[in-house]
Computed example of a mutant assay.
Amino acid sequence: MKFAISSKGDPVSNSIMQKMKTYLLDFQLEYDEDRPDIVISVGGDGTLLYAFHRYRSRLDKTAFIGVHTGHLGFYADWVPDEIEKLVIAIAKTPYQVVEYPILEVIIRHNDGGREARYLALNECTVKSIEGTLVMDVEIKGQTFETFRGDGLCMSTPSGSTAYNKALGGAILHPSLRAIQLAEMASINNRVFRTIGSPLILPEHHTCMLKPVNDVDFQITIDHLTLLHKDVKSIQCRVANENVRFARFKPFPFWKRVRDSFVGDIGR
């Protein structure tokens, strides 16, 4: 089996990375940063996002494992005290592959010849560089509304606990093949109206965002911030690809949600 390790870069994460690499090499596993079967992310959710984008061309061949060295993350199953147990599991036992949906974003431009395709593990956000964002929102080819506000966020179920939650979006179990559109500070008065609620779209529905004004846009794909000019449309849908996680033990999602946001407050 070939493996690679991605570290957050702090002393604790780097130390764990070196220790795990040494152990796994002792078990005769092969270290390969270009074509790994397993990528171990040591740090937090941000570290795993970086690893996901680094290996986005190998999503059908590479599975991810998270070791968190800071606050509890949604993509990290393991803690530093468990690394010896994890190394033995990787080296000696078969693992279960769990696949979750991700987001496909295609940005098309008015010249007709350029388009850019991105994959997001958490979310894509769209904001206007200057002034209010004004976007026509189409669902399955039909106009749904004209949005006016600070911006829009399209998230995956895995990313529903991130920026989407801060915007008042629903938390979705990551196994659901859907995407969610949430508003950022929409304008609602006697003249302009939006739905004012998050929209959850199944995998066979495509959401198209079409600019009403000729402005530049700041578009984020997870941790990546992009500037796009002369935008004709931004197409969002559930991608054909999936993210794959290597599981050696149960991953209780709702317990993770409770521990992260509710805990034992008041008990």
Score class of each variant (00 low, 15 high):
174 P>C: 00
114 R>L: 06
169 G>D: 09
169 G>C: 10
154 M>N: 04
171 I>E: 00
135 M>F: 14
177 R>K: 04
125 T>F: 12
131 G>R: 04
104 E>R: 02
165 K>N: 01
108 R>E: 07
173 H>V: 12
112 G>V: 14
145 E>A: 14
122 N>I: 13
147 F>N: 12
113 G>C: 03
162 A>G: 09
136 D>R: 07
105 V>C: 09
132 T>A: 07
140 K>T: 15
117 R>L: 15
156 T>N: 08
121 L>C: 01
171 I>R: 11
149 G>N: 10
182 A>F: 00
172 L>I: 09
142 Q>G: 04
129 I>W: 10
162 A>P: 05
109 H>P: 00
163 Y>K: 01
148 R>G: 04
170 A>T: 10
182 A>I: 08
119 L>W: 11
161 T>Q: 02
143 T>M: 06
142 Q>S: 13
151 G>V: 09
167 L>T: 03
147 F>H: 06
119 L>V: 13
158 S>N: 07
103 L>T: 15
156 T>R: 04
102 I>V: 15
128 S>F: 05
133 L>R: 05
104 E>F: 01
132 T>W: 00
119 L>F: 15
148 R>A: 03
160 S>E: 02
157 P>G: 01
154 M>S: 07
114 R>V: 11
164 N>P: 01
107 I>W: 03
139 I>T: 13
149 G>T: 04
149 G>D: 03
134 V>K: 03
160 S>R: 02
143 T>W: 01
116 A>Y: 11
166 A>F: 05
160 S>I: 08
117 R>N: 12
111 D>Y: 02
170 A>G: 04
108 R>Q: 10
169 G>Q: 10
105 V>P: 06
161 T>C: 02
132 T>N: 06
138 E>Q: 15
139 I>G: 08
128 S>G: 13
146 T>W: 02
161 T>N: 05
151 G>N: 06
122 N>H: 09
160 S>P: 05
127 K>H: 15
156 T>P: 02
153 C>S: 10
126 V>C: 10
121 L>R: 00
174 P>M: 01
147 F>S: 08
163 Y>H: 09
183 E>N: 02
143 T>Y: 03
128 S>K: 11
101 P>T: 12
128 S>T: 12
109 H>E: 14
183 E>M: 05
172 L>S: 06
154 M>R: 04
155 S>D: 02
113 G>N: 07
140 K>P: 11
161 T>L: 07
171 I>F: 08
115 E>G: 04
139 I>W: 04
143 T>H: 05
162 A>K: 01
143 T>G: 06
164 N>A: 12
147 F>G: 00
119 L>Y: 15
106 I>N: 08
134 V>M: 10
177 R>E: 14
158 S>G: 07
113 G>K: 12
170 A>E: 11
168 G>V: 05
102 I>S: 13
